[in-house]
């Protein structure tokens, strides 16, 4: 048996990883406040037996900054733009590592999938339909949105 973390716990974990890895500082906001339609979206599945899906959505304008801060380069550089998708995927990977312990405990060896990253065009942030899910929506100091959602996957 396992449980997803509370929204507050998820928010704290995401904010901590963002600060440590990318020096991006965020505050939680109301989830219906994000009306931006495009997002760079990274999906990772982790678990042992029953799996948890993690979806990280970052505003496209934020992603080069994440890459630049990971790499120690200028966010306006070509390298930052070219590395943006990989950076969002790697951030999702780091979050999965932390959340795997939060959900399944430190003694469980979880599978963590390779992140799949795609640009979602025209998708708006929808309310969470299922009870077995949680999400946090965060706003950076520069006014960019980022969200992390967790959902327990249905049995195959």
């Amino acid at each position: 048996m396992f449980e997803l973390p509370t929204t507050e716990k998820l928010t704290d974990l995401v904010a901590s990883i963002l600060a440590d890895a990318t020096f991006v500082f965020v505050e939680p906001v109301q989830s219906d406040a994000w009306h931006q339609s495009d997002a760079l979206c990274a999906r990772v599945v982790f678990g042992q037996g029953k799996d948890v899906e993690l979806v990280l959505r970052a505003a496209p304008a934020l992603a080069p900054t994440l890459a630049a801060n990971l790499l120690g380069i200028e966010p306006e550089s070509d390298e930052a733009r070219e590395s943006a998708a990989d950076a969002v995927g790697e951030l999702a990977n780091m979050l999965a590592g932390v959340l795997a312990v939060a959900v399944f405990g430190p003694e469980t060896i979880c599978r963590i999938s390779i992140p799949e990253v795609a640009l979602e065009v025209g998708q708006s942030l929808v309310p969470i339909p299922e009870p077995d899910a949680c999400r946090t929506v965060l706003l950076t100091e520069d006014g960019h949105y980022l969200s992390v959602a967790l959902r327990i996957e249905a049995d195959a």
């Binding site: 590592g97 932390v98 795997a100 430190p106 003694e107 060896i109 963590i112």
Partner: peptide
């Protein structure tokens, strides 16, 4: 160098 934090994985 990994995002995995399982104590069992580390021991293994």
């Amino acid at each position: 160098v990994s995002s995995e934090k399982s104590a069992r994985r580390l021991a293994e």
